[in-house]
Simulated scan of single mutants.
Amino acid sequence: MGDLDATVETGEHVVDLLGGVSSARGGSALAELRAALVKHRSAPVVSGFLDDTA
């Protein structure tokens, strides 16, 4: 993942489109994105996204 800001922004947009984190339709995709971002948790933008989508 090269651009963490853009990745998180896209993830937030997807969560909004799916109707929130609890949407079953995007649960799998969101879980995959969160798993890929975990190694970048030290970046504030990633940490915030992971906390907001936990």
Results as ranks from 00 to 15, higher is better:
residue 52 D to K: 15
residue 48 G to N: 14
residue 46 V to M: 03
residue 2 G to N: 12
residue 45 V to A: 04
residue 27 G to M: 02
residue 18 L to T: 04
residue 23 S to W: 02
residue 4 L to D: 04
residue 11 G to T: 06
residue 8 V to S: 00
residue 41 R to Q: 15
residue 49 F to W: 07
residue 26 G to K: 10
residue 9 E to A: 11
residue 12 E to I: 14
residue 14 V to F: 05
residue 20 G to L: 14
residue 20 G to D: 05
residue 5 D to S: 04
residue 36 A to K: 11
residue 31 A to W: 02
residue 39 K to Y: 08
residue 6 A to T: 01
residue 1 M to D: 07
residue 49 F to C: 00
residue 34 R to C: 03
residue 16 D to M: 10
residue 9 E to L: 10
residue 6 A to G: 05
residue 20 G to A: 09
residue 7 T to D: 02
residue 8 V to G: 04
residue 19 G to R: 07
residue 15 V to W: 00
residue 39 K to A: 15
residue 41 R to Y: 07
residue 50 L to Q: 00
residue 21 V to P: 13
residue 23 S to E: 03
residue 34 R to N: 02
residue 37 L to T: 01
residue 46 V to P: 01
residue 5 D to R: 08
residue 5 D to Y: 02
residue 29 A to M: 10
residue 19 G to M: 03
residue 31 A to N: 10
residue 36 A to S: 10
residue 37 L to Q: 00
residue 16 D to G: 12
residue 50 L to I: 05
residue 3 D to R: 04
residue 25 R to K: 05
residue 54 A to V: 13
residue 7 T to A: 05
residue 5 D to I: 09
residue 27 G to T: 10
residue 47 S to I: 04
residue 28 S to H: 14
residue 44 P to K: 08
residue 2 G to M: 07
residue 34 R to D: 01
residue 15 V to N: 05
residue 19 G to K: 07
residue 33 L to I: 09
residue 51 D to P: 01
residue 54 A to L: 14
residue 37 L to I: 00
residue 43 A to D: 08
residue 42 S to R: 09
residue 31 A to V: 01
residue 36 A to G: 13
residue 13 H to R: 11
residue 11 G to A: 06
residue 51 D to S: 15
residue 16 D to I: 13
residue 24 A to H: 05
residue 1 M to C: 05
residue 49 F to R: 00
residue 33 L to V: 07
residue 33 L to H: 12
residue 32 E to Q: 15
residue 11 G to L: 00
residue 35 A to P: 07
residue 3 D to M: 09
residue 2 G to D: 12
residue 1 M to R: 11
residue 46 V to Q: 00
residue 32 E to M: 04
residue 18 L to M: 09
residue 28 S to L: 12
residue 38 V to F: 02
residue 32 E to V: 09
residue 54 A to Y: 09
residue 32 E to L: 14
residue 9 E to M: 12
residue 14 V to I: 11
residue 37 L to V: 04
residue 6 A to S: 06
residue 43 A to P: 02
residue 9 E to R: 06
residue 11 G to R: 03
residue 47 S to R: 11
residue 32 E to T: 14
residue 15 V to K: 02
residue 2 G to W: 05
residue 50 L to P: 08
residue 28 S to Y: 12
residue 43 A to V: 14
residue 10 T to Q: 15
residue 10 T to S: 13
